[in-house]
Amino acid sequence: MNRRIINRRLDKAFKILGIASTVFGLLVLVVLFVNVFLEGRSRLTWDFFSSFPSRKPELAGILSALVGTIWLMVITGLVAIPLGIGAGIYLEEYAKKNRLTNFIEINIANLAGVPSIIYGLLGLGIFVRYLKLDRSILAGGFTLALLVLPVIILSTREALRAIPFSIREASYALGATKWQTVRYQLLPASLGNIMTGIILAMSRAVGETAPLITIGALTYIAFLPQNPITFLEKFPFIHFTLRGLLDPFTALPIQIFNWVSRPQKGFSTNAAAGIIVLLGLTLAMNAVAIILRHRYQKKIRW
């Protein structure tokens, strides 16, 4: 009898502990958000977005950092998305169960857990030095692409695995080839989940700092990479160049890191303001991913 009551009380106590543990992280998150917001909001003016970094904190802005981040994301996405989806398709639909496949799988699992700073060293050794891309946007984009590749591969595979085998059977039974089955049935059916994975991977890339610092991304950049498209007054009126890809760059998280590590008070305010922008960016991406996943789960019920 007594034992019962004790058990029930223990059960209740544990439940409260469980809720507390679950909420703990979220509480910290709220504190973080509030703290950053109160600290940084005063700097969130138009000037902050349209100014270059400066030695005077109240004049400094994130223009070059923001533009650099956008460039990086474009390169990272262009490289990592097709390669990641391709690898995912191969491993899930084509690969036979053999030792090579097994090896590739372990390899990807390991790569997903390799610290990001190691990718920075890889980028420094291969892209910056060996391929002589220097500390360019291209070197940074390639480095981040390799970093997010395992994430995209894993989520592509998971998305494909969620499609029932009967869909594949139906397609093959009609005489479709493997690629036709992938292209016309499996990819459209898993697109939502794949997109979710890609957005999450890209949101991770947006906030990555360590690998970019390691490849030597400069922190003081008072100019923008050359625009790919410029309009001219004379024929042919439009000038297209990718020279900007080889320009040095800075990115939002690097700029934040730079400001955090300076002792003057003004810079930590700038850091907080930069963090608000960065958090806004990553959280927006995450929100889109969650909504996308939710909608697709609703739409397709096998």
């Binding site: 979220l26 950053v36 999450l200 998280p253 963090i275 960065l278």
Partner: peptide, 17 residues
């Protein structure tokens, strides 16, 4: 999904914190 946000916050932000 809420706890996933915790994992999505860039590490430089945690450093600041």
């Amino acid at each position: 999904p809420l706890t996933e946000i915790l994992a999505a916050v860039p590490t430089v932000v945690y450093g600041y914190f």
